[in-house]
Design a binder for these strands. Structure first.
Lengths: 296, 296
DNA sequence: GAGCCGCATTTGTAGGACAATTTGGGAAGT
DNA sequence: ACTTCCCAAATTGTCCTACAAATGCGGCTC
């Protein structure tokens, strides 16, 4: 793993954070990008201390930070190994950010929005049932801020995030609240992807947000569910288009295995289609979870 | 915070783990139980070192472990503060385990199953679309193991968990896979709650599991969705009954504020009820998320 | 009374020493 | 030649000490 290049990047950037936090970010971004691939070992502490030019205390505290997120485990005499990705805490805000720092994979972004589309309609429905007045008001404020900051992308993103996070909060469910990190990651991803793409006009998206808010305010769970589903569907379309564009631009035709692993059947004609995210087209999904456990 | 009693519990139990891991577990269980309530500070490092009789290095590494999970943050001269619960990583396996170690709150268990009921039907549907043959076979093996271990609670629990986790894995979605920890927590909770309760016979539950598997094998997403919903609904009923029993046994009438904060309306009569988790009765939900940020 | 400064406290970093553990190879015995 | 046992080297784990840096607080000055 090449630590020389990025370890001395932007010496004063993020100088506010502690050393062990910077170390954790450095190693975390690397690991998320697959530098020491799961199953492989990090360099020894002595090596890392020398390469990063830090003391062993700071290095070990940074490593502990990553261990707390499930990224790595250390054993005496053996070393520090990167755990399989299935063990990572994919809802951890830092891990999500580190994934985005490296060029986010198609599957990463797709999975992100898939989960959003499962969770958020329900969150909206529950919010419509349970939200108290002040929280509903805050959702409204977020909507207004989105209109207000329509020009400035930075603030618009923040208001958009606040809109969705407040809805999660309104459910009162501690676990749903933890989804905020995932949404933030998704918004950043779609921002850095489809900064241009967006087949839908911003006004269109803003109106959708406002309509979700209105259904919550009016205590109509089913409508909130449906409208949030719609909102996410259009967002996914934008991101999907952006991904297609990027994929065509970067690499051409990864279409091996475009076949019958998962039969297309857009929606098997059975009893009524469950409301919400429809079984979507996804011709890729080539990786059969090879359970990679190789050691170096 | 009283560290003297529990810090020296079971001196040889878990002697396999490292010291900083034991420290993290000790502090983590305490914090999860609300000993230093969010917003309050932990004792100083010097204090903790003295109370736990460990070196500062080991203590700090344990604290870093907790910081990696979002439980606490440290600042120079200020101290180490417990972050608000909304910032905790509620999908972290350790945090979930620590919550269960203390007597799990009603709302904890309820929220747990609420999220399960949102996620898992979709996971089953996606698995029915995407699962490859070996994974489907493993789901079947889990079913058979559940039948085989019907007597022994320990192995039954393990097979049950394996059933649900394999379905998550079959979706191929990295984030859904991270839900395994939550399911494990839920199973342990329902085990330690309704060890007896279960209005439904075990055979009934086993048959439900098997039918979910069959729909996945036969690539029927909608049926998988519906059956998994049913399976969870009955599981929730059991747990809910157990909670009621326990609540009546332990404390009587915490019914202050049983009022109009969230109007009852079991399901506002609108367009067709979305399939899946129905808006449920929940007369409690007393905590209006007071954003407690008090400092000591 | 208000504003500024210094001091004390607390966490952060450095560095060295030794302990514990496990891998792997080498030696010895069969 | 093969197996078994043991020792030694390598690596993380723990302890210790010292100092650095930040920051809240009290006191001092104007």
């Amino acid at each position: 793993m090449d630590t020389s290049s990025s370890s001395m990047r932007a010496p004063s950037m993020r100088a506010r954070s502690n050393l062990h936090q910077r170390i954790a970010r450095d190693l975390g971004e690397r690991i998320a990008a697959g530098d020491p691939v799961p199953g492989k070992f990090l360099p020894t502490e002595a090596d890392l201390c020398a390469r990063l030019a830090v003391s062993r205390s700071a290095l070990r505290e940074g490593v502990r930070l990553l261990a707390g997120k499930g990224l790595i485990t250390s054993k005496r005499k053996v070393g520090t190994v990167v755990r399989p990705r299935t063990e990572w805490n994919m809802f951890d805000p830092d891990i999500l950010a580190w994934h985005l720092a490296a060029a986010p994979t198609d599957s990463f972004v797709t999975d992100l929005f898939e989960v959003r589309r499962i969770i958020e309609p329900w969150a909206a429905a529950l919010a419509a049932q349970r939200a108290d007045a002040p929280t509903i008001a805050r959702i409204g404020v977020a909507c207004e801020d989105m209109v207000r900051f329509q020009g400035k992308a930075e603030e618009l993103l923040e208001a958009d995030l606040r809109f969705h996070e407040t809805i999660l909060e309104a459910t009162g469910n501690a676990f749903l609240i933890s989804f905020g990190a995932l949404i933030e990651s998704a918004l950043h991803a779609s921002f850095q992807l489809s900064w241009s793409g967006s087949a839908h006009t911003p006004e269109y998206s803003l109106r959708r947000h406002r309509r979700v808010w209105e259904t919550i305010r009016e205590r109509k769970p089913q409508d909130a569910f449906a409208l949030m589903s719609e909102l996410l569907r259009s967002a996914i379309e934008d991101v999907h288009d952006a991904l297609l564009t990027r994929r065509l631009a970067v690499t051409e035709g990864n279409g091996l295995f475009a076949g019958p692993a998962a039969p297309e059947r857009p929606s098997a004609p059975q009893s009524g289609e469950p409301a919400g995210p429809a079984p979507r087209r996804r011709a890729r999904r080539n990786h059969p979870h090879p359970n990679q456990e190789e050691r170096q």
